[in-house]
Design a binder for these strands. Structure first.
Length: 816
RNA sequence: GCCCGAGUGGUGGAAUGGCAUACACGCAACACUUAAAAUGUUGUGUCCUUAUGGACAUGCGGGUUCGACUCCCGCCUCGGGCACCA
């Protein structure tokens, strides 16, 4: 009897599988395809941690299972190696990012291979590889040519610490409500900058519609819907001293309750009106003051602020009433038309503002539930009052009616607006894809290549990122690439030109990586159309919750645009999505070096083996939940493996006992169903239950043992292969003999079913005893026996039976 | 404030209308051992009871049902997202 030596076993199979590329996915195979994707890692430290192991183990188990079920499975892996995480790490270590990412990729690859993940290494990609980012640049130009990429001056988030702008999605709130960067958690502030943006709002409607067609958890769908933020309402034209002011409102039914107009300090209307304003100095002073206030200050300010434009009046359309006009910073510059019609009686914010400035309140909706108190704000629906000829209408009906009437007069129309903003797509950092555009001296911007001309593309792309010895960011917010004058100064059709020096954000490469996996080595196109047609959409996409409104939304946006360009065959990239939970430190806090609670998988692989680690990760609980790391559970899973391994010394051809046969078939049935439904944690329980029965047998039936080895092979691939080779007495390694290319075992339902069942008997819903019934016994016969059962009689206490319920094979309930 | 999600033993969790607490961890006792570790066996929701047995328990309060962790209504707590979005 030899002891289980995980080190020897795992080292051996890791190398053999890699050399063979055992898990190759075949383009155009006649087998049904399954595209299983787990988000690729971005290198931001020197080694993978156990959190990565959690993210990849479950998808790997599932991929391995599908392969054994006869699917042509693509389960690819790559490296998202551009961007801030890698560059910040490079700065910290003093190593050049290009050298550092190269080394990290080698380390990560070794680490994931040690975990036994069944990736198809022929499809490995790295976003930093020029042959990859050539196509990131090409795709960007598609956006540019379609008018969806624009160079635009706008208030954007600036991170002083990282010296770069960030997208809205990359800015989060800390515990105190301060705005910080998602990456690094540094403070950020709004600043005016000229930046490249991709116009996501133009795809807002399509991104919303697409959500109805995919199988995502509700949490993701609602989070994306909230982020896109669709509001339906009306655009209404007000006249302000001869200037047209468009107001967006979701409540046109409150039009007759308008008692003031408020416009954002940044609204250009202010400039148009300012010379006619009597208190010009006050207004300018207010605008200046507001400009210096951060968004945070604006938010925490309890009282609303603003200033009246003296001598200026607005006319409410249809009503004809004249109302005062204010500049107020509760009106946001970036949303709607930056102009609000103030209805204090029916909007909380307008109410607060009106109270502060002692403005008139006009109630136009009477609540259904009865009279609304004077000087209270009522936001519900009801009956119209104080609204001229419309009095008495239901507010819901009036909403329609007023829009029609406004439209007739050319004073308004239905309109829909979205919260989602332009996606700020340029960064003032070195480690990203260069944007393939040039600026001519007359200010025009041109792509460096005609994307529709293959020979031009071949000649001019990729635009390679120059090797800057000093890649640190500039203090003034310009790009480090600006310093490389030789690179910057170029020509375009014989004219002098300067290259665009901003780089793309770290999200760029991940927007389309799942497309590249379908055809990773193509030099003529980002991917072959037929291959995309074969593989897409991604059938199961596993990733992190933190990407819900970032990568997951961005890549849906790219994909939908590419679909409209007829470059991809499906409307949506991912058919199904599951967000994985986190693995916390043993102390229940987020794993972090500063807490000293980071768990390195290497330590556990060393001590117990990757198989044990994989099992204990699977066993923790559902994939989508978050858990503190518990090093004890790996001891249990290690014990399980040792037990299974030792059973091979008791092999025999003797018939198995009925009990073992039943238990085995039940285990196979349950594990099969559970993997299909991705309930991986309970699979381990089922295996444990069977093994603890099986191990007590004096002799181990060989066929059943082989079945067991196949069942554990997706979970513990190394030890399964080792046992499989040995018990089949394969002299030398042959690819087709790998346990991982075998067929998933079948189960025999008839061996699981029992003829005699033990059924619990309830009296008034409480279990009091149980009786044995045969499978086909009639209800009458069961009833008779229950009625005569001693215990039942005792609990009936002589009362007559009101109702007798027998759910076949499950339960009996006697009601008195 | 609004929108999602979740609350089950000492701990991770199982059970989607049918025997609540599977499977583990931890703990305790015992066996093996000079001893410890490892391993194995048994026990382990709470309360009453010597036992047999019984009562109560899935955040709280109601409801539907023969039967509710599961479905419905109202709260509480925690986690996450959005947040002056007109």
């Amino acid at each position: 009897m030899e002891a289980y030596d995980h080190k020897k076993i795992e080292e051996k199979w890791k190398d053999i599988w890699f050399k063979e590329n055992l898990y190759e996915a075949e383009d155009f195979s006649s087998k049904p395809k399954r595209y299983i994707l787990a988000e690729f890692p971005y290198p931001s430290g020197k080694a993978i941690h156990v959190g990565h192991a959690m993210r990849y183990t479950v998808p790997d188990v599932y991929s391995r299972y599908l392969r054994m079920k006869g699917y042509n499975v693509m389960f690819p892996m790559g490296w998202d190696a551009f961007g801030l995480p890698a560059e910040n790490y490079a700065i910290k270590t003093g190593e050049h990012p290009s050298k550092l990412t190269h080394q990290i990729i080698i380390d990560y690859k070794e680490a994931v291979q040690r975990m036994g993940y069944s990736f198809d290494w022929n499809r490995e990609i790295a976003t930093t590889d020029p042959s990859y980012y050539k196509w990131t640049q090409w795709l960007f130009l598609k956006f540019f040519n379609a008018g969806l990429a624009e160079y635009k001056e706008a208030p954007v988030w600036w991170c002083e610490r990282m010296k770069t702008v960030l997208a809205d999605e990359e800015v989060i709130n800390d515990k105190d409500g301060n705005k910080i960067s998602e990456r690094g958690e540094y403070p950020v502030e709004k600043r005016m900058f000229k930046q490249w943006v991709l116009k996501t709002p133009q795809y807002a409607e399509k991104l919303l519609e697409g959500l109805d067609k995919v199988d995502f958890p509700d949490t993701i769908k609602t989070a994306q819907r909230n982020w896109i933020g669709k509001s339906e309402g009306a655009g209404v034209l007000f006249d302000i001293e001869g200037e047209k002011a468009l107001v967006f409102t979701t409540r046109p039914d409150t039009l007759y309750g308008v008692t003031f107009i408020a416009i954002a300090p940044e609204n250009p209307l202010v400039t148009k009106l300012i010379d006619r304003v009597k208190n010009k100095e006050d207004v300018l002073q207010y605008i200046n003051k507001v400009k210096d206030r951060s968004d945070l200050e604006r938010q925490i300010e309890k009282e609303k602020t603003g200033v009246i434009l003296e001598g200026i009046r607005a006319t409410v359309p249809l009503a004809g009433k004249k109302v005062p006009v204010f500049v107020a910073d509760y009106v946001l510059a970036g949303y709607g038309t930056a102009t609000v019609m103030g209805v204090p009686a029916h909007d909380e914010r307008d109410f607060d503002f009106a109270k502060k400035f002692n403005l008139e309140m006009v109630k136009v909706i009477e609540s259904k539930e009865g009279k609304v108190e004077e000087n209270k704000c009522y936001v519900g629906e009801g009956t119209m009052v104080n609204s001229d000829k419309y009095n008495g209408m239901k507010s819901e009906d009036f909403k329609q009616k007023i829009m029609e009437d406004l439209e007739k007069e050319g004073l308004g129309k239905q309109s829909t607006i979205f919260k989602i903003r332009d996606w700020v797509f340029s960064r003032q950092r070195y480690w990203g894809e260069p944007i393939p555009l040039v600026h001519l001296e007359d200010g025009t911007i041109k792509p460096i290549v005609d994307v529709n001309n293959p020979s031009d593309v071949k000649k001019k792309l990729p635009l390679v990122l120059p090797e800057l010895p000093n890649y640190s960011p500039n203090e003034d917010g310009s790009s480090p690439l600006d310093r490389d004058k030789e690179w910057v100064n170029t020509d375009f059709d014989g004219r002098k030109a300067k290259r665009e020096t901003n780089t793309m954000p770290n999200w760029a490469g991940s927007c389309w990586y799942y497309l590249r996996y379908c055809d990773p080595k193509n030099d003529e196109a980002f991917a072959d159309k037929e291959k995309l047609k074969y593989w897409l959409p991604v059938d199961k996409y596993f990733g992190g919750a933190e990407h819900t409104t970032m990568h997951l939304l961005y890549s849906r946006f790219w994909h939908r645009f590419l679909y409209d360009q007829k470059l991809v065959p499906t409307e949506e990239p991912y058919q199904w999505r599951l967000n994985g939970g986190l693995l916390l430190g043993a102390d229940g806090r987020k794993m972090s070096k500063s807490y000293g609670n980071v768990v390195e998988p290497g330590e556990y692989i060393e001590k117990y083996g990757a198989d044990s680690l994989r099992l204990s990760i699977c066993f923790l609980g559902p994939y989508e939940d978050t858990y503190p790391w518990n090093s004890n559970s790996i001891k249990a899973t290690n014990r399980l493996i040792q037990t299974i391994y030792s059973l091979k010394d008791k092999l025999s051809n003797d018939k198995p006992t009925k009990d073992v046969e039943k238990s085995y078939n039940l285990m196979v049935k349950n594990v099969t169903n559970m993997i299909e439904n991705l309930k991986i944690n309970t699979c381990i329980s089922e295996i444990m239950i069977f093994v603890s029965k099986f191990k007590n047998e004096k002799k181990i039936n060989e066929d059943i043992y082989k079945g067991l080895v196949k069942v554990i092979s997706p979970f513990a691939p190394f030890v399964a292969e080792e046992i499989w080779q040995e018990i089949n007495k394969f002299k030398e390694w042959k690819r087709e003999n790998s346990v991982h290319l075998q067929e998933w075992p079948l189960f025999n339902e008839s061996l699981i079913e029992e003829n005699i069942l033990t059924i619990p008997v309830q009296v008034n819903g409480k279990v009091r005893t149980s009786i044995k019934v045969t499978k086909d016994e009639s209800e009458d016969s069961v009833k008779e026996r229950v009625e005569n059962n001693e215990k039942v009689i005792k609990y009936l206490e002589g009362k007559p039976i009101k109702k007798f319920i027998y759910i076949k094979g499950k339960i009996i309930n006697v009601v008195v």
